[in-house]
Design a protein around this nucleic acid. Structure first.
Lengths: 132, 132
DNA sequence: CTAATGGTTCAACAACTCTTGTACCGTTGG
DNA sequence: CCAACGGTACAAGAGTTGTTGAACCATTAG
C-alpha cells in the first residue's frame, strides 16, 4: 500500500519466493516484453536497467512497470551502485522454488514469436514458391 | 470471428502449435483455475468435461471459457463421443513445440498456492498451542 | 415429438494489465 | 548550492481477462 510514502524510493522489496504462487510466476513470464527482458538477462547476466530499456526501445516508465512485475514474482533482483541500477535473474533461488521451470522457459524463449521466421519452416519445401 | 455462425458448435478448432507463441502458452498456464485443470488432466488422463467442472466446482460457462483458452494455446484436445465430451492434454505435441515446459509446470503445480499449508512451515513459532 | 442433458455463445460487469506522459525522488557533477 | 541524470510513483487511457447468468444448439431418453 503506502509503499512509497513510508520507505521512499529505495523500498523496492524483493519477493520472498516461498510466497510466490506458480500462477503468479507464470503470469510474470507471460508477457512478450518481459520474456525479452528475461532472455536478455539470461544471456548477458547482470545488466544496467538503462541498457535494457534502451536496447528494447521502451519507455522508462514501462520498463519500470515490468521490472516491478518481475521483481514481485521473484524473477529478478535489483541492485544499485550509485545512481546506476542493474538487474539480474535470481536463477538459483527461482529454481529452488520452481525446479526446472525457468530453464525450460529460457530454452524456449527463442521460438517465442511464431512470426515470419517460423512461418517459413512450416510449409514451403524450399523448392518453388509453391503457388498452390 | 463468426466462428459460431458458420460451422456451428462443432467448430472448436484446435490450435496449430507452430502458431502458438511462448507468451501465449505461458498465459494459458497463468491462471489458477487452468492450472488445476491441467493438473487434473495430467493426473487422470482423458477426462469428461462435466467431471472436470463438477470436481472443480465452477460453472459450465466458466469452464467452457477456460477450455477455450487451453485449446487455443494448444494445451488440450477435445473429443466428443455422443453428447459426452472429454479433454486430454496434448502432452507430446506441446512438448514438441516447447520442450520440457509442460513437464516443468506439471512438476511444480502441486506447490502452486502459497496458502495455508505453506505458511505453516514458514513462521508460527507458537510452540505452546500444539500439545502434540 | 417432447423433454432433459452436456456445452457453447452472448451480453454485461468488475477487475486487472499494458502503455504513455508527467511529476517526483536521490544521487552525482558542475 | 543548483542542474542533470537514472528510476520510480501517479494518473489516465485503451484493451484484455475472469466470472456470472441467460439463451441457444445438438444429442439422447422418454
Amino acid at each position: 500500500m503506502r509503499r512509497s510514502k513510508v520507505v521512499g524510493m529505495r523500498d523496492r522489496f524483493h519477493a520472498e519466493l516461498d510466497n510466490v504462487s506458480l500462477a503468479q510466476a507464470m503470469h510474470g513470464l507471460s508477457d512478450p516484453l518481459r520474456l525479452r527482458i528475461v532472455a536478455l538477462l539470461a544471456e548477458r547476466g547482470e545488466t544496467e536497467c538503462s541498457v535494457i530499456y534502451n536496447d528494447l526501445g521502451i519507455s522508462k516508465s514501462n520498463a519500470s512497470h515490468h521490472f516491478r512485475v518481475l521483481r514481485e514474482c521473484g524473477l529478478i533482483w535489483r541492485s544499485h551502485q550509485g545512481q546506476q541500477q542493474s538487474a539480474r535473474l535470481r536463477v538459483d533461488e527461482f529454481d529452488g522454488r520452481f525446479p526446472g521451470l525457468l530453464a525450460a522457459v529460457i530454452r524456449n524463449i527463442g521460438t517465442g514469436e511464431p512470426g515470419p521466421e517460423r512461418l517459413r519452416e512450416a510449409g514451403e519445401p524450399e523448392g518453388a514458391p509453391t503457388p498452390r
